[in-house]
Computed example of a mutant assay.
Amino acid sequence: MANLDPDLLAALRRAARDARDDGVEFFVNSGWRSREYQEHLRREAVSKYGSEREAARWVATVDTSAHVAGHAVDIGPSGARAWLSEHGARYGLCQIYRNEPWHYELRPEAIDDGCPPLYADPTHDPRMQW
């Protein structure tokens, strides 16, 4: 979990411990990504989806990716995602995109206010505009 934001990492560790107490184990399938790897993923998405615009629904650019900044993780398996969907806000861990149920970011305000509404996909997130 190298290069993750320390607050995100601490929240993940607390959530993982409590999930384990509930019989749920979760894994970080993807955390921090290098700029090179993010660009590789973006190019693959363009090839798969046929355009930059469609690929942007699934993979951010190196300059907008929360993974490159160390501020996002992809969680698995599905049982862990279900647990985080129900309990994540108490740790500030929120799903951000409706089309990416595995993608979580730290939103400390969620501890008091709950997670913010989901964006349909990254193209609706103002941080992802390029």
Rank of each mutant, 00 (worst) to 15 (best):
Y91K: 02
D21W: 13
A55I: 04
D5E: 12
R53P: 00
A72M: 12
H71C: 11
H103T: 01
A110Y: 13
S65R: 10
G88H: 03
H124D: 08
P6M: 04
A82R: 06
G70M: 12
R42A: 07
R98E: 00
Q129E: 01
E54M: 02
P108W: 09
W83N: 03
D22Q: 13
G92R: 10
L12V: 11
A60V: 03
E25N: 06
A11E: 11
V59M: 09
A66Q: 14
R20N: 05
D74L: 10
P101L: 04
Y104W: 02
L106D: 07
W83C: 03
P108D: 04
D18W: 09
Q38V: 05
Y37E: 14
D125V: 07
N99F: 09
D22E: 15
G76A: 13
R81H: 13
L93P: 00
L8C: 10
N29T: 10
D74W: 13
A2S: 02
Y49G: 04
D125L: 07
E100D: 15
T123N: 02
R13P: 01
V68H: 03
E105A: 12
N99C: 08
W32Y: 15
Y49M: 06
T64S: 08
P126H: 01
I111C: 02
Y97I: 08
D5T: 05
P116N: 05
R81Q: 15
V73P: 09
Y119T: 02
I111R: 14
A110I: 11
R13T: 12
R13C: 01
E52V: 04
A60Q: 12
Q95S: 02
G31Y: 05
A66M: 13
E36V: 11
A82Y: 01
N3A: 08
W130N: 00
R20H: 05
A10F: 05
R53A: 04
T61Q: 01
D113Q: 04
S30C: 06
A55W: 09
R81G: 10
E105S: 10
S65P: 12
V24H: 09
F26I: 00
S78G: 06
F26M: 01
R35C: 04
R33M: 10
G114W: 14
I111E: 07
D22H: 15
A56Y: 02
L118S: 04
Y49T: 06
R81L: 13
D113P: 00
A69L: 13
Q129Y: 01
P116A: 08
V59H: 11
A69K: 15
E52Q: 03
V62T: 09
N99S: 14
E39T: 14
W32V: 09
I75A: 06
